[in-house]
Each structure stands twice: as structure tokens, then as C-alpha cells.
Write a protein that binds this DNA or RNA. Structure first.
Lengths: 209, 209
DNA sequence: CCGCATCCTCATGGATACTG
DNA sequence: CAGTATCCATGAGGATGCGG
């Protein structure tokens, strides 16, 4: 909205930059990877095209992101600056805070699997105890991801080449329950949190090691 | 604004609750201590009375804060719920992220010393190295505070009774520089970041131990 | 197609005045 | 003191257009 609080205060000035509607959701999308205008429209259901354009312009002048030409000569691409990427911490904090708002399920709200890419590690970091060698693969349609336990927490990235040892299917809601809880992954499986039935938005969770 | 993103996503649902204008600033004020309506008006320069009333109502129904009668039988008081108080982490993350926005000074923006009560510990936690026994007292007019180094970080609260050993004065801008930098407190003093001259908004920083 | 810009309507924010 | 009521400016969101 470009409307400043005009306060000499860290929180107020942070909100002057990222407090406007959609801004943190745009940044979260770009924290996954640089994206095109069209990908942002698709990943932010409900945003108007003029709003996205204005927000991208504003965040660019504020120094949060950069607009640049994509490699293949076609179209523009938006990337976070180093300072913009540091919004990962506030965003993950908000995701952890929001778990009570997620346990009641989707209730007709839109869902995109990419949103789990930050959420699951953010939640697991704080709560789930897993054996250090555990690896979880997640497959949403054509999106194939691998969740690895590291010493400092969890890391979610593209699935590397090696084969996985077991496969189960679950719904997004159950993945979020799993992430928000304090169960180990094998406990969650034993308790039936991970199901085998199909769903419009099916996740295949693959456990190995 | 009561306008929901309608997304099944932790970040979006967090912003449905605290993403509206003024909401996080209200919560930050209540993180310091429970407050009356009038105190909130004074601590949030620029907020309209109808907006504050509406936000308090909304945050109450959302479960972030509670409205209750003050002890002395007179007036109402607003307090954070335990869940609302957990917003301290996201708020401190945003404060840390905002340091590049603070280094250029006030530039005519409003300033209230209470805002430092969360900011200074949030910044010092991450960056300043101080001897474990260090204590800093801050005095803004009638507001007297003491900053103590603990094992887990820093804690800012009311000044306890014991006498303090040294006194210097500084401007809020310099306090913020100090907090955002990587200098020790004694280094900052030696380098002249802490001044003795007067100012409309003078801080007296008192070092001991 | 992509990457926006313009136009339009209506909900929301903000300032001021007023009230129990 | 603790808010309501009112009015007006502005931002949000949908539809559409348009050059590359």
C-alpha cells in the first residue's frame, strides 16, 4: 500500500517493506527458487495481476528482490537479494506459530504443494525427532522432493538419484499433522497417520534408511 | 481487514490473523506488559481509535489476546494469551531483519522508548558479545530499564534497586547503532558512539559490572 | 502464450467528532 | 476513559486490453 507507519522502530520499518498484503507470500515463493511472473500468479491463488506487478516493483526498489532476464533469452525472472533471502527466519517463525490454525484441515481453502517446501522443514526443525540418517521423499504429481535430516535440522530439496526403500501415500492434511506433531516418522506410520488411499491431492511419502 | 487469503498454508493463515495493518505492532506493545486502551493509543502513533477498537476485537476472537477488567475495578486491560505471546519469535526475527532500515536514523519519524524494550535484546542476542556479568541501565525520561546479560541471551526489564557504577548519555540513534553492530559495549563507549551531549530524546546509558 | 497496464467497483483504512 | 459514528480517501480485486 506504500503507506508508511512513519515510526523510528525496527518492527514498524520492517512492516513498511513486507507488511503489505501478499508481500510475504511473494517472498516465500521466491525463497524456494527464482520464479517467473506467471509462476507467481499460479502459486498465489487470488492475487490480482495489477497487485502482483505493483508489489514486485515495490519490493524491487526496496531491495528485497531483483528483476532480471531469464537465461534462455525469453521472459523475466524474479530473484531474492541476499537481504530478501534473510526473510526466511521471520517467515519460518510465523509458520511455526501458525500450527494451531492448520490442525483443522483445509476447509475448502486452496492448496499448493510448494507451500510445504518451507513449512515442513520449519516445523520439523523445532519438534520432530528423527534418526539422523532418515530420509523422506515426497511426491506431489510431478514435484519430487527429498527431505533429509542433517545435524543442524532438516533440509528439503530435489530428490537425488538413489533409489528409495519404501513407499506410502498420504494426504497433505496428514503430512501437516505429521510435521506439526512430536511423533517420529516411524511412529506416525505405525499410528496410521500415513494412509494408503487415494485422494485428489495425493502425496507419496517414501521412507528410506 | 478480516479479508482472508483462503489458502491452506501456514504462512497465509498466520497472516490472516496478524497480517493486517497495526496488528503486529499491537502485539509487540502487549509483549512488554498488559496495557490499557489509552496506553495502546499513545504507544501506536497514527492509529485511529476505531481501528484500534476493531483490531482488539478481532485479535480477541482470534485467540491472540484477552480483554479483562483491570485489578483496581477501573477500566479494561488487554493481555496476550500464551499463544499470542509466542509471536515474540516472529517479531524479534523481523526486528533483526530490519537493521538495514534503521541505520540511517529517525528522519522525522516518531519514536517511543518502549520500542527498544524488545529491539535491543533481539539485536544483542544475535550479534553483540558482552562479558556475561555486564549490566546496562537505560533511562528515557521517567522510564528506567536495566539490560542484563544472561546465559541464554539478554533480558530487558525494570531497573532493580542496586546502585549503578557509571553514567553516560546517548541518543536513541546511537543506541540502535550499538545494538545493530558487533562492538562490545565498552568498545562502543571507547569509540565515542555513546555521547555526553543533550538531545530532545536523550538516553542515559548506565554501565556496571 | 507472457508480462504487465488500465478501468472500474467496493471494501477497508484513516481522521475527526461525538457519546455512555 | 473507552470506545462509536460518520465521512472521505485509498487500496484490493476482477475484468479487460495490449504490445512483444
Amino acid at each position: 500500500m506504500n503507506r508508511s507507519y512513519d515510526l523510528y522502530d525496527g518492527l514498524a520499518r520492517a512492516l513498511d517493506v513486507v507488511g503489505d498484503r501478499w508481500n510475504l507470500l511473494i517472498v516465500r515463493h521466491l525463497l524456494i527458487c527464482p520464479a517467473r511472473y506467471r509462476e507467481l500468479i499460479d502459486g498465489l491463488p487470488g492475487i490480482a495481476t495489477n497487485l502482483l506487478a505493483e508489489r514486485l516493483r515495490y519490493l524491487q526498489t526496496a531491495g528485497v528482490l531483483e528483476r532480471r532476464l531469464a537465461g534462455a533469452g525469453n521472459g523475466v525472472e524474479y530473484t531474492l537479494t541476499p537481504w530478501g533471502a534473510e526473510l526466511r527466519q521471520p517467515i519460518e517463525s510465523l509458520i511455526r506459530w501458525s500450527t494451531p490454525l492448520m490442525i483443522n484441515g483445509a476447509n475448502g481453502d486452496s492448496f499448493r504443494p510448494e507451500w510445504l517446501i518451507l513449512s515442513i522443514p520449519a516445523l520439523l526443525d523445532a519438534r520432530v525427532k528423527v534418526r539422523p540418517s532418515a530420509t523422506v521423499g515426497l511426491e506431489f504429481g510431478d514435484l519430487l522432493l527429498q527431505l533429509r535430516a542433517t545435524r543442524s535440522g532438516f533440509d528439503l530439496g530435489p530428490l537425488d538419484g538413489r533409489s528409495l526403500e519404501a513407499t506410502v501415500r498420504t494426504k497433505p492434511a496428514h503430512i501437516l499433522d505429521l510435521a506439526a506433531g512430536t511423533l517420529t516418522l516411524s511412529d506416525a506410520r505405525a499410528l496410521g497417520l500415513i494412509e494408503l488411499d487415494g485422494d485428489e491431492s495425493v502425496v507419496r511419502a517414501v521412507f528410506s534408511a
